[in-house]
Simulated scan of single mutants.
Amino acid sequence: MRTLAYRRPTSAEEAVELMASNPGAKFMAGGSNLVDHLKLGVASPELVVDVSGLPLDVVEECEGEDGHLLRIGANVRNSDLAAHPVVRSRFAVVARALLAGASGQIRNQATTAGNLLQRTRCVYFQDVTTPCNKREPGTGCSALDGYGRYNAILGASPECVTTHPSDLAVGLAAVDATVVVLGVDGERRIPLEDLHRLPGERPEADTTLAPTDLITAVELPMSHPDTVSTYSKVRDRASFAFALVSVAATLRLDGGTVDEVRIAWGGVAHKPWRAHLAETALVGGRLDEDAVRAAVDDELDVATTSAETAFKVAMVRNATTMTLLRLAEEAAR
């Protein structure tokens, strides 16, 4: 049985100080990811800093520097966030992404910040008997020549071809969320799109955060009343399965013309993939099947596939087309 120290700070500042004075310590909130890794031997911290008791569990509307926003505390449970009336009415893409993830029991335990910081579910990362650059830098990537159905097709590197597992992160990427972080030098804000990183030569680093950084909240700019949004997830079974491909999208039409569209993909990269090229191609035009497929193909022009992942190109194209056409019908009502 592994031994480790356990601390339960009473403030966010104390939590950051504990991390700063104990290199290799790990934050824990809901624990649905870290506890698994402790059992598997993937993680072996000498100290666990339990932040689940910190008063970071409120969802509230407030004013920010750029206008009205919804502020979500880091410890808000996934089930509570999905059921929140403002999230359901103004950020349907976030609510549906949450409900597409895990199971009811896990959603009752998992937190907003913890969901964003999930580590990959690559089978080789979780199997400590196999080489994995993300788990042990420099050992190699077993997924390159192994089981690769869930591998990335965008932004991967020879060091790592895994994908990011969070549904919530993809939904938040589509609404231009901002992550509020407390570090040793104080508080700062990071666009969610800049929170996660591509593997490059350092796949062990999932995010741009320092080990001492604590996410305290996520802020969502309030959507335009005419904006519609949703989340579509393609997976092997109807529940408790990670995405082969997922699509988070928001849409606002002006007559029959696209005034604003945001698209984020899951299951295709090391991070939620914001499809900026596709968005640019669609804005100002009519939204029909041919236009969406052409825009998606522009974005996927840099995709790299293997025999096992080639299906994802067609799946992304079809799922995005279906999602946006349904949103267009909803926006036109």
Rank of each mutant, 00 (worst) to 15 (best):
Y6T: 06
R7F: 08
R7S: 13
E14V: 10
L18P: 03
M19T: 01
A20D: 08
P23E: 10
A25H: 03
M28E: 04
G30Y: 03
V35N: 01
K39F: 12
A43W: 00
S44C: 03
D50A: 11
D57F: 02
E60G: 02
E65I: 09
D66R: 14
G67R: 06
L69P: 00
G73A: 08
P85R: 09
V87C: 04
R88Q: 15
S89E: 13
R90M: 08
V94K: 04
V94Y: 06
A95L: 02
A97P: 09
A102R: 01
S103G: 09
Q105L: 14
I106W: 05
Q109G: 00
A110T: 13
T111W: 04
L116P: 07
V123T: 11
V123Q: 12
V128R: 13
K134V: 12
R135I: 03
G140I: 09
C141M: 07
D145A: 15
G146K: 07
Y150I: 01
N151R: 09
I153L: 03
G155C: 03
G155H: 08
A156W: 05
S157C: 07
P158F: 06
V161G: 07
H164V: 03
S166I: 09
L168W: 08
L172P: 06
A174L: 10
V175W: 11
D176W: 01
A177I: 09
T178W: 13
V179D: 01
D185F: 02
L192H: 12
D194P: 02
G200E: 13
E204G: 00
T208Q: 06
L209N: 01
A210H: 14
T216G: 06
V218A: 03
V218F: 12
P221E: 04
V228W: 00
R237H: 13
R237T: 12
S239Q: 11
F240T: 00
A241S: 14
A241P: 02
V245K: 01
S246G: 05
A248G: 15
A249I: 01
A249F: 04
T250K: 02
L253A: 02
G255I: 10
G256D: 14
T257Y: 10
E260K: 14
R262K: 15
R262M: 03
I263D: 07
G266I: 10
A269W: 07
P272G: 11
W273E: 09
R274F: 01
A275P: 05
L277G: 13
L277E: 15
G284F: 08
E289Q: 15
D290F: 05
D290N: 12
A294V: 08
D297L: 08
D298H: 13
D301P: 00
V302A: 15
T304H: 12
E308H: 09
V316L: 12
L325I: 11
A332K: 02
